[in-house]
Amino acid sequence: MTLQMWIFLGYFAVVFGIGWYSLRATRGETDYWIAGGDLGWFAGGATMAATHTSAGTFVGTIGVMYTVGWSFGWVLLSIPLSYWFMVAVLAPRFTRQKELTVPAFIERRYYGKGIRGLSAAIILVATVVYIQAQIVAGGLIANTVFGVPTTVGMVGFTAILLVYTVVGGMMAVVYTDAFQLVVMGLGAVFAVPLALRQVDGLGGLLTLVESAQPHVFTFQAVPLTLLLTMGLSFFLGGIATPEKLIRLYAMRDMPTIRRGVLFAVVMILALNLLVFLLALAAIVLFPALPTGDLAMPMIATAVLPATLGSIMLAAITAAMMSTVDSLLIVAGSALSVDIWQNLIDPDVSPGGRMWIDRLGIFVVGTVPVLLLLSGVGEGELVQFIVLLFTALMAAAFLFPVLGGVLWRRATREGAASAMVGGLVATFIWEAYGSPDVEPVLSGFLVSGALFVTVSLLTPPPPDTALEPYFD
């Protein structure tokens, strides 16, 4: 056994320990799906930050910055603004009536079981694809650390994730996320000074980057329209995604949400800025990588000493697991609560419900790995699909959720057409539109236009649907 393996085994042991503790603390569906709805700002904020930070931050983001330069970093500003908007405008009304799932909110506000099923189906498809891509990253890490084939690594990671998520539900996700956030922080905090030491400190780094790649510190490397539309789509896309909304239900009250989001934003900004600095170091240390995605693995193996390198790999794993477990909760609840218990078997007994809850997560978690093992969705295509599906989910939910709590006249038909229209428009732009503009923007435009027009053309919603959210 190498030291690297011990570090990973210790890390998994802590995760399982938290899962076991959560099983004992979970007493009913409220605990299982929204961690009792009584989280404090620290646990709530930590799980938000950990969910937000995926393997994409540690591999994809650093890769983009390595390729296009620091101007990409400015897109980061859209993230705190998006969270701020969510807390100030959406959260106060959205949390007046707590639900267990986001589709349950859709049913109450839009008075229909059909539209609840539609939103659950969108969540299911989008998250399964997203989980797939993250599991591929997990397979690669397992290959590096334990020398096992990537397929074994993928199955292994899925098994670990499923054990604690199925057993402990949202409680396990929240508390493991807090631990994963610490691991990510440690990885970034240790890596940056060591990388900087190799390039004569921060001043030396800036001088070296400027002389080697003068375009890095300009706004000319990327078309300005692309930077602005990226920022705008991060902003709009961040306001109403289901895995974030469910965390608003999980936190105790509005003051807690405001503090939790402050904590999350500070952690997300700090982690990203540290990763950006690593990207600059990679530009100097490894100037000719074939793809930017190799920047982080190169730093972990060639710059850091073995122990810290494995902490960095553990940090990437932590980023991956803390995002996948949250998506498992969202997708599992869509399957077992919103589709099975709501549409297929409404008379299921309370005892049977908890059983179906766990089965839902198990099914949603095993499908991606089965698809991967049968050869569906491997390679480059996955990254492309992930971006597309995050865009689809954002385009589908922004207007129905935000408009639902701000605009009394929003109707069921308006919301349904906004969901479907947003999806279709994003797909069409992705296939035929200009690559200088983010495809999700067309999704938002079409979704918003349909939401307003169709709502005005259909009969107004009944008072019972509005009463929980409006005075």
């Binding site: 500003l77 705190p80 100030a88 800036l206 510190f217 402050l262 934003v265 900004l269 800025l273």
Partner: peptide, 30 residues
């Protein structure tokens, strides 16, 4: 230009966080 593009991002992040804290304080005093 380097100073503005590089340090400006850190400054901007700081400003957003401070502005959020001020908003939070104001919101809870109301």
């Amino acid at each position: 230009m380097t100073d503005f593009v590089f340090w400006g991002l850190f400054l901007a992040c700081g400003i957003v966080v401070v502005a959020y804290v001020v908003w939070m304080w104001w919101e809870e005093r109301r």
